[in-house]
């Protein structure tokens, strides 16, 4: 039997802004198992970003239970959530979000540095990871010297730095041309084949179809699977 990585039960997320209540997530229950390739789809405002934040331990639910790899996270403090994020989850963002002042290798090394590894050790592994995505000649380049596709590959390496089980990608091809986008998707699928659990948020139907499972959101609720 496969291990359940995420289990959400009756999850509500309600924002209060200037007196008006917004129900971003309404009674969401779902399970994601180890090794799955899941696409979370929906229109903007459907709650898919909020769902990703809750799954990614960036946010805690207003009501309900979220269990990540056997651990209930809905009551955890900031720093405990940070620990789960850096050990279990690798994030890939739409806008890459690399640190401009650091080189590619230093960006990739960062999660290891936060995890307590020394600089030399982290940089060594960072360079190995960059080599795996064909960027061995770009290790000392700053983000502004790299193309969008290259930046996103650096970001994927950064997500892999602490060897997490889960890759969480938020519109990873959203800022890329179609060719770079396909390269990134190919890379994600390769990671899936190597055993990583991939969870991708997208509004691109073509991308979503390639996933083994789709979770479609509308108005904060799951409408179909």
């Amino acid at each position: 039997m496969k291990k359940v990585l995420f289990e959400l039960k009756d999850v509500w997320k309600i924002y209060c802004m200037k007196g008006t209540e917004t129900q971003a997530l309404r009674d969401i229950s779902l399970k994601i198992e180890n090794g799955e390739y899941v696409a979370i789809v929906g229109q903007s405002g459907s709650g898919k970003s909020t769902l990703m934040h809750v799954i990614g331990c960036l946010d805690t639910p207003t009501r309900g239970s979220v269990v990540v790899d056997g651990k209930e996270i809905s009551q955890l403090e900031d720093d405990d959530l940070a620990k789960i994020r850096r050990e279990k989850i690798g994030f890939v963002f739409q806008a890459f979000n690399l640190i401009d002042s650091l080189t590619a290798a230093e960006n990739v090394a960062m999660p290891m540095r936060f995890n307590g590894y020394g600089k030399a050790e982290s940089i060594k592994r960072a360079k190995e990871l960059l080599k795996r995505v064909g960027l061995e000649k770009r290790v000392d380049h700053k983000p502004n010297q790299l193309s969008g596709g290259e930046q996103q590959r650096v970001a994927i390496c950064r997500a892999l730095a602490n060897d997490p089980e889960i890759i969480l990608a938020d519109e990873p091809t959203g800022n890329l041309d179609s060719r770079s986008g396909s390269e990134i998707i190919a890379l994600m699928e390769e990671l899936h084949k190597s055993g990583k659990t991939i969870i991708m948020v997208t509004h691109d139907q073509n991308l979503a179809k390639r996933a083994k499972r789709q979770i479609k959101l509308k108005d904060g609720q799951i409408v179909n699977e």
Binding site: F91, I99, M110, F114
Partner: peptide, 16 residues
Amino acid sequence: RREIGTMKAIGATNRQ
């Protein structure tokens, strides 16, 4: 802000 947010997202603790 965005860089600090990114660092926190990828696992930096508040203390770090």
